[in-house]
Design a protein around this nucleic acid. Structure first.
Lengths: 154, 154
DNA sequence: TTTGAAAATACTCTATT
DNA sequence: AATAGAGTATTTTCAAA
């Protein structure tokens, strides 16, 4: 029971492959194979298994919001008024400026991240939510830890 | 002054390419070209320019933390005690379970996301920070909005 | 900026260890 | 599980518009 499920273990080769993909998901299988110390077909097979096991959820692109005009980012804690939970959840989902949102324990029901072009835009979005929830907004000044992989070794 | 910088504009082709890459960053140039309605060389050239302009920050892999044993995720707000700001920032950076962290305005100085295998592990991490900061932890129960692209059209 | 065609690379399949 | 080799597909380059 305290033995971790073997299916969850990543060996050194898996780890090197995931680290290489985290640096550049568009790396060729050939390069990936070199990093892993395998032939290309073996690397392809490993990659397929990592996907099948659900370890790899997706290959995605990181956009720089500021490069397309979103000069401000905020983290918003949202506490729906009684009876408004589902409406608030839908409003958040339908507001595309919310680029991620988690539902959490504690006083705050939702914690979301949003991008805006201006304070005016932020104000407009928060006003819409204000009818149905209390919000607490923190503007992002810096990002000391950019999104990174969790520790891969047990 | 109210005119957005033209360099920040994404045309319909750029948008389709970014959306396709957000779905699968390892899509081939050939498929990307089909999505865009261009030849492969044109798609490659557009892609290169999106990278050069800084619109594309990186191609990355999304790991499913629960598939490698991290059954719990938390959002932690961290408020360093007087004089402890930089030490706390370093502790967070050096704790690999923090998979992202922002420095924000307001009472909370840092808001971070962390993954753990158990409540015991979470407790250990928070105890280490507790000597130097107040923390407020929310466990993630669900994710109503998974990381997605910001709106791409002005 | 885009295209088409050719050359260079990379990928995938099968058989094999 | 991993590999080698062969056949297939993709990517890159380049001249031209």
């Amino acid at each position: 029971m305290s033995t971790p499920n073997a299916a969850m273990e990543l060996d050194a080769i898996d780890q090197r492959m995931l680290e290489a993909l985290a640096r550049n998901a568009r790396i060729s299988l050939k390069e990936l194979a070199e990093v892993a110390g395998l032939s290309s077909p073996s690397a392809a097979e490993r990659l397929r298994r990592l996907e099948d096991r659900g370890v790899i959820a997706a290959f995605t692109v990181d956009i720089a919001p500021e490069a397309i005009g979103y000069s401000l980012q905020a983290i918003v804690r949202v506490r729906p008024l009684p009876g408004q939970l589902h409406v608030v959840e839908r409003i958040i989902q339908e507001t595309p400026e919310f680029i991620e949102c988690d539902k959490v324990t504690g006083d705050d029901c939702f914690i979301g991240r949003l991008v805006v072009r201006s304070m005016g835009e932020l104000d407009g979005i928060l006003d819409k939510i204000a009818e149905r929830a209390e919000t607490n907004t923190s503007m992002i000044k810096a990002t000391p830890v950019k999104r990174r992989l969790p520790p891969l070794s047990p």
